[in-house]
Design a protein around this nucleic acid. Structure first.
Lengths: 139, 139
DNA sequence: TCGTTTTCTTGACTGATTCCAGAAAGCATG
DNA sequence: CATGCTTTCTGGAATCAGTCAAGAAAACGA
C-alpha cells in the first residue's frame, strides 16, 4: 500500500518534522501547487511557518525524489507527489494551471533523443502548452 | 532563399531599426544565446544599446514568431532563429548549454496529448536534460 | 539525557526580467 | 523632403521567485 509521509521521509533519510509532514500531506491533496500555495496551506494547518522553511522542504524533497518539481516557463514552479511514473503535463499559458497527462507513447520512446551531442541525458521532459477552459473564452 | 533580417521584420509588421537588425543578425550566428549574451554581441556591433531595448526586441520577435524562446528551468532564457520546424532541445543541467535535437518521432506524434482536459493545446515542448561533455568529468 | 547534526527563523540579497516616463527614431502621407 | 502619428529606445526604478547567511531550535542515535 501507499506509504505515508512519515515513512517516505524516513526512507529518504530526512528527519521527520512538522513542516515536512504538513507539506507532503497538503501537497498530496493539492497537486501542482506553487510554493506560495503550499506555504498558505501549511500555515493553515500549523500556524506560523517561515517561507524559507517551505522552500527548504520543497527543495529537500525534490532532491531526494519525494516530490517532483515542474517549472513552466514564465510561471512559478509547481510541485506534485505523483512521482516515478514518467507522466507529463499540460500547462495553461494564461493562468499556469497544470494538469497531468499520461505518457503519449507508452514508456520508452519518450526518453530517446535521436543523437545526444555527447550529453549524458537523464531525463526527457514533455510539456503541453495551451489555454485552460477558464482562460479560453477571452478569444 | 532565406530572407534577411530586413525582410523578416517587414513581413512581421515590425519597424526596421538598428537594434533589431543587430539582434537578428547576431543571433543567426550564435543560436541558443541568452539575453545577456545577445546584449553583449549587439553592443559590440552598435556601441551602446540599452538592456531594455534588447529585451524589447527579443520579446517583439518572439511574439511575432521571428524568434523562438527556450526557457530551461533554473537557467535564463535562450533564443534562436531556427523556427517553424518543431525541433527540440538538449540542455546541460550544470552550465545551461543548449543544443538542437531533431524531433524524435518525425512530425505529428509530438503534438498529441492523450487527453487534453478541455485545454486548447497549441504546442508540445520536449526538453532533454543531462550533462554536456564539459560538465560531465566532475563525476 | 547528551551532543551532534539537521532543520527552522529572520532578514538581507540576487538575477532575470518588466514597468514607467520621456526622448528619439521610423515611416505613411502630402 | 517636410509633417505628424506611432512605435521603439533610453535610463532608472521596481518586481518576483527564489537563495544565502547566521543563529536558535528541534530531531535522533548513543
Amino acid at each position: 500500500m501507499t506509504p505515508g509521509p512519515r515513512e517516505l521521509l524516513k526512507d529518504a533519510g530526512l528527519r521527520i518534522t512538522a513542516p515536512r509532514l504538513a507539506v507532503l500531506g497538503w501537497l498530496a491533496d493539492h497537486p501542482h501547487a506553487t510554493a506560495d500555495q503550499v506555504a498558505d496551506g501549511v500555515r493553515a494547518r500549523l500556524g506560523t511557518v517561515s517561507t524559507q522553511a517551505v522552500y527548504d522542504v520543497l527543495n529537500a524533497c525534490a532532491r531526494t525524489g519525494l516530490l517532483r518539481r515542474i517549472e513552466p516557463a514564465g510561471h512559478p514552479a509547481r510541485y506534485e507527489t505523483r512521482i516515478g511514473d514518467n507522466h507529463h503535463h499540460l500547462v495553461c499559458r494564461s493562468c499556469g494551471r497544470t494538469e497531468d497527462v499520461d505518457c503519449v507513447h507508452g514508456a520508452a520512446p519518450c526518453l530517446e533523443p535521436s543523437h545526444a551531442s555527447g550529453f549524458a541525458v537523464d531525463e526527457a521532459e514533455v510539456l503541453f502548452w495551451g489555454l485552460c477552459p477558464d482562460c479560453r473564452p477571452a478569444t
